[in-house]
């Protein structure tokens, strides 16, 4: 049948495009990964997209990356603004992983999914308001986020309470992002993922 061959051709092109898409698009670097990720490259090489970590998260913070994420489609990720990682004491997602894509975390300060970065233009603490929300909700308060007291310009009595993030201590759980009081024009705190850090390093 002649028509059948054309349809087979179309089907082959579809699958080839799908495959090429996952290779060319690479892995989307903005995806925030579950705790226990070592590096994005290591994670992508090991993750078989079985979804067990998603099914193990008691806060349903893990969801599946959509089809437009290249080779990362189908992998687990966190939307920190929606539902951040709660850094469970026993890390059920890590325990569920069959291929060690998530591994080597024992205590709550172990994971490094990324670190939080504050946009000074939008964060109201920089404008002099006493907010402290990110600081107060941080599971590693006074380690990952500290308050830096700065005096106000042209003012002798008031102080700015500037949240300051320790890149080294921040786990990247994203609870500060979830709870940030500001959303307009955009949320002034976000997690710089491991993949983004790697990109920034190669750029500089």
């Amino acid at each position: 049948m002649g028509a059948g061959k054309y349809i087979a051709g179309i089907a082959a092109v579809l699958v080839a495009a799908e495959a090429a898409g996952s290779v060319v698009a690479g892995s989307s670097s903005e995806l925030l990964r579950p705790p226990g990720i070592q590096s994005e490259a290591d994670f992508i090489a090991r993750c078989i997209k079985c979804g067990k970590c998603i099914e193990a998260c008691p806060y349903a913070a893990l969801h599946v990356a959509g089809p437009l994420n290249g080779s990362a489609a189908g992998t687990p990720c966190i939307d920190a603004r929606e539902q951040a990682c709660r850094l469970c004491a026993d890390f059920p997602c890590v325990a569920a992983c069959p291929t060690d894509a998530l591994r080597d975390v024992n205590k709550r300060s172990d994971p490094h999914m990324g670190y939080a970065r504050i946009d000074e233009e939008v964060c109201i603490a920089y404008k002099g308001y006493r907010c402290e929300v990110c600081y107060r909700v941080c599971p590693l308060i006074d380690e990952a986020i500290t308050l830096d007291f700065q005096s106000m310009e042209r003012d002798d009595i008031h102080t700015k309470f500037i949240p300051t993030i320790s890149k080294h201590d921040c786990t990247g759980c994203g609870l500060c992002v979830e709870r940030c009081a500001v959303s307009e024009p955009y949320v002034p705190i976000r997690i710089v993922t491991l993949a983004e850090q790697a990109k920034e390093q190669t750029r500089s």
Partner: peptide
């Protein structure tokens, strides 16, 4: 399998291609 369990859309295009080929080619 995973689409039903946790909403993964991986392999959707492949499945479409498989169905097309099965219906009209061989």
């Amino acid at each position: 399998n995973k689409g039903l369990i946790f909403g993964s859309l991986v392999g959707g295009i492949t499945l479409l291609a498989v169905i097309l080929v099965e219906l009209f080619w061989g």
